[in-house]
């Protein structure tokens, strides 16, 4: 399925929020995910019609 990462569309796989983050090679410790506009927990199930936005929230500085 397609998700938004840093404002760009990326292909991801997985049926849960955690699965999607891992399929993008990202650390769950450094990301938060919105599904249909709201933050979602690791175990939230997602389907292709959901709007998924992956946000990297941990940075240096």
């Amino acid at each position: 399925m397609e998700v938004l990462l840093d404002g760009r569309k990326r292909k991801a796989s997985g049926s849960t929020v955690r699965g999607i983050v891992e399929s993008l090679g990202l650390s769950p410790e450094e990301t938060l995910v919105k599904v249909n506009g709201r933050l979602a927990s690791d175990g939230t199930k997602v389907c292709p019609k959901d709007e998924v936005k992956v946000m990297r929230v941990i940075f240096g500085g």
Partner: peptide, 20 residues
């Protein structure tokens, strides 16, 4: 303990969980 991936509910109240 959300080992079951289908569990996405707040452990305190059962509403939809927004963060793990």
């Amino acid at each position: 303990f959300s080992k079951d991936s289908s569990a996405a509910h707040c452990w305190k109240c059962g509403k939809a969980a927004r963060i793990t």
